[in-house]
């Protein structure tokens, strides 16, 4: 009887152990496989995002170059012809002057659009001068004092500099549109392989995370995607009564 009892108990323990082993084994395999699959898909999505952002950058550069070399060149030529004609046709001088002003305005707008699409300084001088030039221009129009400081020459790979420029452009555009900002400080610090950008303003406080979750927050989502593509993150420092403080951090800048 004792032997039979031991056999039943052994059968119970071994059977239960095998069943539990199978159950946990199945769950372990599923979780591991799903995690692997999830990572693979995320990597794929990241690569697609990088390719799409790179294509967008190239397309912007091409349109900017076309506008600058094509349309601007043609408008300049028209302007010159008008000057020559105005000298010959003294009777219609006023009409010529008006046409010339119109062509001047079109030329300036074309240059502005071209610069906005791809700031020429970004490729030649880098992020900090391009940013200073851009903020000087919008600051004057929006009556906001932008101060950009950097610890020496911030040499970044072109793709990283471009994405950061777009991120900062989006943030500062938001300040102009909704922020009620009068002063904004941007501090860029590159230490060894990590880059930190501190953005502080004195405008209306807003919660980045909460706004990001809203369906119409395409600009903020854009910021996140661009930063994600270069391996960066944006963190909002503690919310204050007045103003906002964001920190953008990029580790392994040169490998981004």
């Amino acid at each position: 009887m004792k032997g039979t009892g031991e056999e039943v108990v052994s059968l119970f323990y071994i059977g239960t152990a095998i069943m539990l082993f199978l159950a946990f084994g199945l769950l372990f395999i599923v979780v591991t496989y799903q995690r692997h699959f999830f990572r693979m898909k995320r990597k794929e999505a990241e690569n697609m995002l990088k390719v799409s952002l790179e294509s967008e950058k190239n397309e912007r550069a091409r349109i900017a170059a076309d506008l600058h070399d094509g349309v601007s060149g043609d408008l300049s030529a028209i302007k010159n012809y008008l000057s020559v004609l105005a000298k010959k046709e003294s009777e219609n001088k006023e009409i010529f002057d008006e046409i010339r002003e119109g062509v001047d305005a079109a030329l300036q707008n074309t240059r502005a659009v071209s610069h906005n699409l791809m700031p020429p300084l970004l490729e030649t001088e880098g992020l900090v001068p391009a940013l200073k030039g851009y903020l000087e221009s919008i600051g004057a129009k929006a009556q906001i004092y932008f101060e950009v400081t950097a610890n020496g020459a911030v040499a970044l790979p072109a793709s990283v500099a471009y994405q950061l420029f777009r991120v900062l452009q989006e943030l500062t555009t938001n300040m102009v549109k909704y922020g009620n900002v009068s002063k904004c400080d941007i501090n860029i610090a590159l230490n060894k392989e990590a880059l930190t950008i501190d953005i502080t303003d004195d405008g209306t406080p807003f919660n980045f995370r909460e706004n990001l979750a809203k369906p119409n927050a395409s600009g903020l989502k854009n910021i996140n995607s661009r930063l994600h593509a270069v391996g960066g993150v944006i963190v909002q420092e503690e919310e204050k009564q007045v103003g906002n403080h964001f920190t953008i951090t990029l580790k392994n800048v040169n490998n981004a």
Binding site: L11, F12, G15, T16, L20, L22, A23, L27
Partner: peptide, 16 residues
Amino acid sequence: SGLIIYFSGGFFISLL
């Protein structure tokens, strides 16, 4: 997951 663990663990005790 809960159901799998419950049924696996309880099968042999119910049987025996």
